[in-house]
Nucleic acid binder design. Structure first.
Lengths: 220, 220
DNA sequence: GTCTATAAAGTGATAGAC
DNA sequence: GTCTATCACTTTATAGAC
């Protein structure tokens, strides 16, 4: 079921690739099975044959991109923490473990920057928390591991505070990916056109400062 | 066309209120005219009579919530800047002018926190930058005014850097509104259930630190 | 595994009576 | 300004031939 050669992709792969591009561009609900099978140049019935339903196809597309990224995030955090030398992992490294896998996913061309940003935005905006079963648990693990690392790095942080600050950081990344081009339009080009690597560097800097500038983080 | 009394809302108002709740809950494209007119308890034909089309209804709903918030943002920034005493408006105040109108919009019950968050998320995720004509110009004005204020407060910031940092801050707010409840689910309740006012306070703190910790913000 | 043909339901929009 | 009835279309999904 996996990749075969570059030149003769499986029918189900043709469907997946066409689907992810169309979903990113126009949204999960707006895109019809006919749009997908048309772009993939396969028969209308192929989707239901290979995936069971449109909903399951959506889940498959989501899983295909989100799980590898989250796994890589956890792997990187492990790797950084296992490094000898420093006994406390600095905030910047934690953020890097969190953000770099997304950057690599983009740069490696799994999906173009433009598409992947839109895809993430769609996923978050349209699907909200009704994420497929197969991607949900990893998010729980990540929340625990990353907020834990953060609390070691910034001892003043409560668990609650650490979780929310991770969430804030996720918001910065997600919004930048999804709507970076919006800023450029709104500002009439005055926001420049910084390369994605530079933007990620800026995000890490912004978020690290935000996290380290942690005051009281308990309500009441 | 405006509000009449509390007890006998206009047909078009019934439609608007039903529509915004449904759009927030389920997305612009997923909700049908029949869903809306059913919830509003008006006739199917009423939408086309009063608004012309479903698209125009969507625009009306968006405009109704977004424009007042943006106007209030600019008004607040004017007010703060006109205050004697300090000659440079601190970053925290700039962020407050940016965020407080959203908080007020929620607290005043124009739309509930839950709904408004989802609504913003939908708007951003599904509509992207194809915002209605009537709300677009205000965003341009805001980008200019707020990034200008920021550069006065943090002279090291380039125009580009100021715009991107405003954008980052917007991302934090937008993502928190839209997916605050997601964090609570992911973390298994360990993120607590902080009141919205406290969360906004935290966001301002996070973003102020992120903006003030501005290093080099020019690429190349 | 892939195709055609079609079922069954839902969509936005509108004409025309009241 | 509100209603019913209906048009023209698209949607997902599936049965059955090959």
């Amino acid at each position: 079921m996996a990749g075969k050669t570059e030149d003769s992709p499986t029918t189900s792969e043709r469907v997946l690739r066409a689907a992810e591009a169309l979903f990113a561009e126009r949204g999960f609900d707006t895109v019809s099975l006919r749009d997908i099978t048309g772009a993939a140049e396969v028969n209308v019935a192929a989707v239901n044959y290979h995936f069971g339903s449109k909903d399951k196809l959506v889940d498959a597309v989501v899983e295909r991109h989100v799980n590898p990224i989250n796994q890589e995030r956890l792997r990187l955090l492990d790797e950084y923490e296992a490094q000898p030398g420093e006994d406390v992992l600095p905030v910047r490294s934690i953020l890097e473990a969190f953000l770099a896998p997304v950057l690599r996913h983009i740069v490696s061309g799994e999906m173009s920057e433009h598409l992947f940003g839109k895809f993430m935005g769609r996923l978050i905006g349209e699907r909200g928390y009704s994420l497929p079963q197969k991607v949900r648990p990893l998010f729980g693990v990540m929340a625990r591991r990353f907020s834990g690392a953060l609390r070691k790095a910034v001892p003043e942080l409560s668990e609650e505070g650490a979780l929310w600050r991770m969430h804030f950081s996720f918001g910065v990344m997600s919004n930048t990916l999804t709507h970076g081009d919006t800023l450029q339009q709104i500002s009439g080009g005055r926001a420049g056109d910084p390369p994605i690597e530079f933007l990620f560097e800026q995000i890490i800097e912004f978020c690290a400062a935000g996290i380290e500038g942690a005051g009281g983080v308990e309500h009441e």
